[in-house]
Structures are given as C-alpha cells and as structure tokens.
Amino acid sequence: MKITGLLTVIICGALLTYYAMDFPDFGDGRSPANTYLSPHFLENTMHDAHVPNSVTTILADYRGYDTMYETTVVLTAGLACFFLLRRKESTSPPARFFRHVPTGLTLRIEEGGKLPAENSKVFTRIDSLWAPDSLIIRNTCRLIIAFVQLFALYVVAHGHYSPGGGFQGGVLLGSSIILFSISNDLRRTLKRFREKTAAVLGAIGVLIYSGTGFVCLLMGAHFLNYEALSPLLGLKTGDPMARSHGIFSVEIGVAFAVMSVMIWIYYNLSSAGKHDEGL
C-alpha cells in the first residue's frame, strides 16, 4: 500500500511538474489571466459600485451569485454536522463533577448521590474531561472577547474599503463565542447563545443574502442586480451607491450566517453531539 501510494504520488507529481513548465512565469503581468478579464473589474469597481476594494465588488456583485452559494455551503456544513452528530438522549457520565466556588474544591458525585440544585450559587457543574479552572485564562478571555467582537464589526462594515468583509467578520464573531466557550464551559455558552438561535440565525443570514437578490427580482431587474434597489433606498436610478448598499446588506447576511454556523459546528463537534460537556 505504502509503495503503490508513493509511486502514484510521484507519477502524478512528475506529470504535473512537466505540464507546469508551460505556465507563464510567476509574477508575469502579461499572462492572459491577468490581462483579459481582470482589468475590467479594476477599472470599473469605483464607477459601478463605488467600492474601492475590487475583491469585495467581485465577490458580492459581479460574481455575487457564487458567493450566495458559498454561504449556502457553510450552512450546509452546519446542517450536516447537526444531522450526523446531534443526539437528543442524554448520555451523561455516571459520576458528575462540581466545584465548590468559595474554596475551589472539586467534588465528584457518584451515581445516585444527591446533586446540588440547578441554580445553586455555591456549586457549579464542571466537565468530566475537566481542565483546571484558571482565573487568568477566564479574565484574559473576557477582556479579549469584547475587542475581538468590536474588530469583527469593523471588518464587516469596512469591507468596502479594506481587506475583509462579511465572511472574515463573521468568522471572527463566531470565534469570539467559541473563545468564550473554551475559557468557560459549553453549558454557560449554550445559555447565552442557544442552539436554536444558531440554527435559525444561520438560515436567516443566507435568507438575507438571497432575499436581497429576490427583492431585486421583484423590482423587475435580474436576480441580484442591486441597481434595482435604488428606488427603495431613495436614490436616483443608476446611482452607484445602490450597488454599494446592496453589497453591504449582502455582507451582513454573510456575517450572520457564517457566525452562527461556525458556532453551531463547534457546539456539535466539541461535545460529540451531546451538548452537555464541551472541551
């Protein structure tokens, strides 16, 4: 197996290298790829949509249809993880671990033992694959999370002018919640951001995207042609700002979808579908 695998790989590699010799040199500005379509995008991005970052314009406008499906792919992954892993039956371990908050002692309660009340302030439940509770980690993360979220919002809103956009911002927002979940625990995170919220918000995010396109269609233009939005936004027909706002609304949809789906996948993967104990 090893030898055949290695041979296949070497043959494939040799073939690929042989055909790669025909490529234009690395960094060649005159190759067909760099001269045929891309100048059109660069030269018209300001004129068409009033967005300096041409990557954003192509992503959400010229090839916005691709991006809609890209967001759908993310949602599909979330749905798939839920569909494959989620278990409703509770398979909690026979012994549970609790921490006595004032002293920091850990209690292990065997099956049949009396469990502390759900809303007890003195005892908190901790995971069986438990990591030592650290004040430093918890407080540092609490500090960082606010900044991560602020930066994420900046990235979403500023995608027109600088690198970034809905996708990157969405992942950042999602990872701030994941960070919270890692530094505290999954149950506490689930109380603040429930599974249902994640699932519904993910669908709503993509719905914002495709809904924007559908509104364009209802306004009589082609699907995703944001120019048709100008009467709704109070702009003159042909004003590039209509496209700019269209792109922005789409980016918000992407950010919502990506954020909640990333969190949803994390919930399912980190607890193996049980949603009782995280990492």
Partner: peptide, 30 residues
C-alpha cells in the same frame, strides 16, 4: 500564484471616482 504580478500593489483602487485606474498597476483580483 497565478494572480501575482511582480512589483504591483494589492487590488484596492484609490478612493476617487474620477481618477483613471491603470489596471496593470494592481494585482489581479479575480
């Protein structure tokens, strides 16, 4: 790698609707 152009800048054009953009100065965004 195919998009790279030696010595050219990232594909964010100047914020000026009337300035003519020289596409050859920017890396291919597609």
């Amino acid at each position: 790698s195919t998009a790279y152009k030696t010595g050219k800048t990232i594909p964010i054009v100047p914020y000026d609707a009337h300035a003519a953009v020289q596409a050859a100065d920017f890396i291919n965004p597609l």
